[in-house]
Amino acid sequence: MINYIWFFMIAIGVLVGIINGRMAEVSKAIIDSAQTAVAISIGLVGVMSLWLGIMKIADKLGLTDIIAKLLKPTIIRLFPDVPKDHPAISAMIMNISANMLGLGNAATPFGIKAMEYLQELNKKDSASNAMCRFLVINTASIQLIPAVMIGIRASLGAKNPADFVIVSVLSTSTALVAGLILNKYLEKMPIFKE
C-alpha cells in the first residue's frame, strides 16, 4: 500500500510540475528535502537520547509496572469476557502501558502475546469480541510522552516542544471512547457475527 502511495505522490508531483512549468522548483525541492532530513535527524538524536536515558531510569524503577497496576481495574472491567486471572489480561495491560509511555518497540511483543492468549479463549479464525476491543484500544492508544514528535519540534526550533501533548492526549482519549462505544454497538449486529 505505502509503495503505491509514495510512488503516486512523486508521480503526481512531477506531472503537475511539468504542467505548471515549475520543474526548477521541483528539482530544488527534491535535493533540499533530502538535506532537510539530515538536519532534522541530527536535532532529533539529542532529544531521543535524553528521553531514552530518562526512560531507562524509569524502567529500573518499575514505572511500567506502576502504570500497569493503575490500569488493571479498568482493563478487567472492559474485558468481562476474559477471566480476571487469565494471562491475556496482564499481557494486554503491559502492552497498553508501554504504548502510553511511547515505548512502541516494547509494546508490540506484549500485544502479540496478548492476542495469542485471547486466541486460546477464542479458537476460531474469526476475531473474538475481546480481540476487537483490544485492537480498538490499540489503534487509539494514548501516548503520554510522544518523544519522537517532541524531538522533531525541538529540532525545528519550537519554543515549547511539548506544548501539543495536551491536545493530542485529549483527542486520543475522545477517539478511544468513541471507538469503544461504536465497537460495543457493532459487536451485537448480525452482519458482524463471529
Binding site: 479464525d125 474469526s126 476487537c132 485492537l135 463471529e194
Partner: peptide
C-alpha cells in the same frame, strides 16, 4: 495487520470500522 496476522485471524469483523 500485525496483530491479527500474528494469530491467524481471517475475519476481522467490526474492528476495522471501529478503528
Amino acid at each position: 495487520a500485525v496483530y491479527y496476522g500474528a494469530v491467524g485471524i481471517k475475519k476481522m469483523r467490526h474492528s476495522v470500522i471501529s478503528g
